[in-house]
């Protein structure tokens, strides 16, 4: 990393034209000075950028007047914050107890095979990031898999391929 993240004039100008940084500035301004603001700000920043790159962390640290080390400490502590970019869709396989008992491990295994990645990995086409999640509270439908906002209940390994293809096709259509 290192050099790439150093601030330089070109990134400054890139930032000026990137509306995500404007959004970030607004978020920070809204929370600056409030106690306990760091976690809500990180949540919203991650929503804007998809992840929390180093330069965003620096801006947040400066804006909220907390040490960068603390920002980093909080990001690494909580599993939902990530400083790595993610695929377009995040697949979450619920590994809560209900889902585990109902065979979530086999679904996860199938996804790993189909996507050619391990847990937390992103598929070569940049489309999917594979995560395991804690109970998403839909235990009645176990095992549960989520892709972005979509929830798939009563999952079976055999159903994985077809579901993935749906997203891949939608993507190809959008391109065409």
């Amino acid at each position: 990393m290192g050099a790439a993240n150093k601030q330089c004039c070109c990134c400054q100008s890139m930032r000026a034209s990137d509306e995500r940084y404007q959004k970030l500035a607004d978020i920070i301004a809204r929370y600056a000075g409030q106690p306990g603001a760091l976690i809500p700000v990180l949540h919203q920043a991650q929503e804007v950028f998809g992840y929390l790159p180093q330069d965003v962390q620096v801006l947040i640290a400066e804006g909220l007047d907390v040490p960068l080390s603390e920002v980093d400490g909080v990001i690494t502590f909580y599993s939902l914050f990530t400083s790595q970019p993610k695929g377009k869709y995040t697949i979450g396989v619920c590994m809560g107890t209900a889902c585990y008992v109902k065979g979530a491990a086999a679904v996860l295994e199938e996804l790993k095979q189909q996507l050619g990645v391990d847990v937390n990995g992103t598929s070569a086409d940049g489309l999917f990031t594979l995560n395991v999640t804690r109970c998403v509270g839909a235990c009645g439908l176990a095992p549960v898999m989520t892709i972005g906002e979509d929830v798939y209940g009563r999952m079976k390994p055999e159903a994985v391929r077809e579901i993935l293809d749906k997203y891949i096709q939608a993507e190809q259509q959008a391109k065409a």
Binding site: M95, G96, T97, R134, C135, G137, C139
Partner: peptide, 12 residues
């Protein structure tokens, strides 16, 4: 926070 994986009463 309902951390027990497999509990969803607080959510409901």
């Amino acid at each position: 926070d309902e951390g027990d994986p497999g509990a969803f009463m607080d959510r409901s």
